[in-house]
Design a protein around this nucleic acid. Sequence first.
DNA 1: AAGTGGTCTAGACCACCGT
DNA 2: CGGTGGTCTAGACCACTTC
Lengths: 237, 237
Amino acid sequence: MAPKYLQVAGQIESDIIHHVYQKTNKLLTEDEYAVKYQVSRNTVRKAIDILVNKGYVYQVQGSGVFIRNHHNRGHVNLERLQGVTNDFSDRLVENKLLDFKLIEADEDLAVNMGCKAGTSVYYVKRLRYVDGDPFSIETSYFNKDLVKYLDENIVKKSIYNYLRNDQKLAIGFADRIIGADYLTSEQADLLGLKANDPALVVDNTVCLTNGAIFDYSQSVHHFKHVKLLKVSNMKGS
Amino acid sequence: MAPKYLQVAGQIESDIIHHVYQKTNKLLTEDEYAVKYQVSRNTVRKAIDILVNKGYVYQVQGSGVFIRNHHNRGHVNLERLQGVTNDFSDRLVENKLLDFKLIEADEDLAVNMGCKAGTSVYYVKRLRYVDGDPFSIETSYFNKDLVKYLDENIVKKSIYNYLRNDQKLAIGFADRIIGADYLTSEQADLLGLKANDPALVVDNTVCLTNGAIFDYSQSVHHFKHVKLLKVSNMKGS
DNA sequence: AAGTGGTCTAGACCACCGT
DNA sequence: CGGTGGTCTAGACCACTTC
């Protein structure tokens, strides 16, 4: 059973997506949601906080909660892991499996994954397409002590959906380090670009709720097709 | 008077930075902070939420709040606007003013700033250095209807510190769109790189608490010196 | 002055971690 | 089992916007 504030957030999010508030461009008041969903006002506020952080709305004290217009322009929202699968749910996301094997972590990888050298890790290399265009090259490592099982069929689809829904993995938090770099000629071939073209590179470190690193990965994105979106809230600084 | 949860968050943040919890790598319990600061537990939780979002700590139900080890590696934390000034407070941040003038917004700029064409906007172009290395080229536009005054002296220092502290501007939220692109030869000269080298490009749209856009800017970052950091929390999806 | 979001409290009960 | 974080409530009062 999902907590109430998530249920309420989901309902309101669905309303926004289906343009229920298009006339006023404004949500209902907190008190109105409290009555509507039979929850306390604090629970409503927690739900709205989630929508604020996802970039759907902004709050103005004394006035209301307003819908943000330029929310979706094909950007990958950094607020969600699993960006491509979520943000492009209305587009065709495909994966081409380039490599898949079980290996032992060397010294460098062990440092990045916070494990001992020699630990068994799944190695997955995929080329991801959106609407038929090459989108990014994703090289991932999964600690086998934590991710007990993977196979080619799973890996061709959404790995995270499997880990969360089937393996019931308690995914907690992630660091992402974002930079730019040259494309190697091999990467350029895969993405349909030229060697030394720019690349948008994201290093991911993903942890379980108990802090253990189960996934370390690097995504090399097509610089023309991929823009990341970060929405920030200045409250709390 | 800052709200209590911000004060508490500031205190604990300071404790973390000064290695008060180094022995255990763990914060005090929520109840202990509630007693220590004479606030309710909910206020403590709100303070800790801020530290979670800033990437200082992570929470484990039933166990405690733990400090994250690899927090600072010279990255620009996307959780804060004013990244360079904050994240590199222990390093030398300098600005070279390349251009500064009052102009009228053309059609394109007006669209980006949500204002009418012909609106007066300050135009600021700066080259930013960290520890003497060229770091990024920042091209900014400020709506003069909202940012009443700027001059060369202010612009050579931290614009945001001035707007927040002196002009008491109520800064609310921001969108950032992150991508990679080629460097132009002019940009390459400024950054000490070569034309067509990669660049990490960030477009900013910054709004007041009432939703009005007061700042639109583009930062072109040195791809070797700049990495952005995003910490994510999987709670609430 | 009325409406609406922002802060804060005190307390209840649940879920999970560790011993 | 006790300790600790997670969810939720009902209500009070403040700050800001709108009229």
